[in-house]
């Protein structure tokens, strides 16, 4: 099971994410939700507007797998990609994270992090970035 670190949770909560969705045949639609809530170790919850929910409703019905890229300044500071299975219930989108990747440009781009013990991921973060989360 993928486990989000405190740093990942902090950036996602404060800035939300670009949520990549697609039809089963691979036609993409991306929405942007500017904040999120975290439940437990690996669930990210987004409150969608009615327009956002309507925009991805059909995709979610046929293909619940989504990709998340942190929004705003987090797109620079929090170089992660999260993938997982989503469920749209009303205007609430719950994503169970199953894969976590480093997207830091360089030799570690696309490095899969969720296969590591969480203490190793934290150590990785501490040696790669100066911050431990977004500014207060």
């Amino acid at each position: 099971m993928a486990q989000l670190t405190g740093r990942m949770k902090g950036w996602l909560e404060k800035f939300g994410a670009h949520i990549g969705t697609a039809t089963k045949a691979g036609f993409p639609t991306t929405i942007v939700v500017e904040q999120a809530a975290i439940e437990g170790d690996n669930v990210v919850v987004f409150d969608l507007t009615a327009a956002q929910a309507a925009q991805i409703q059909a995709n979610m019905a046929e293909n619940p797998y989504v990709a998340l890229g942190p929004h705003a300044i987090a797109s620079i500071r929090a170089a992660y990609q999260f993938k997982g299975s989503a469920r749209l219930s009303g205007n609430k989108l719950k994503v169970e994270i199953k894969e976590i990747y480093c997207t830091k440009p360089g030799p570690e781009a696309a490095l899969r992090l969720d296969v590591l013990p969480v203490e190793h991921i934290v150590k990785f973060e501490e040696t790669r970035w100066r911050d431990s989360g977004p500014p207060k």
Partner: peptide, 13 residues
Amino acid sequence: TTCSSDGIPNTVG
């Protein structure tokens, strides 16, 4: 955002 032919998205900065 791109996706595989069977619809798995990939979203990167």
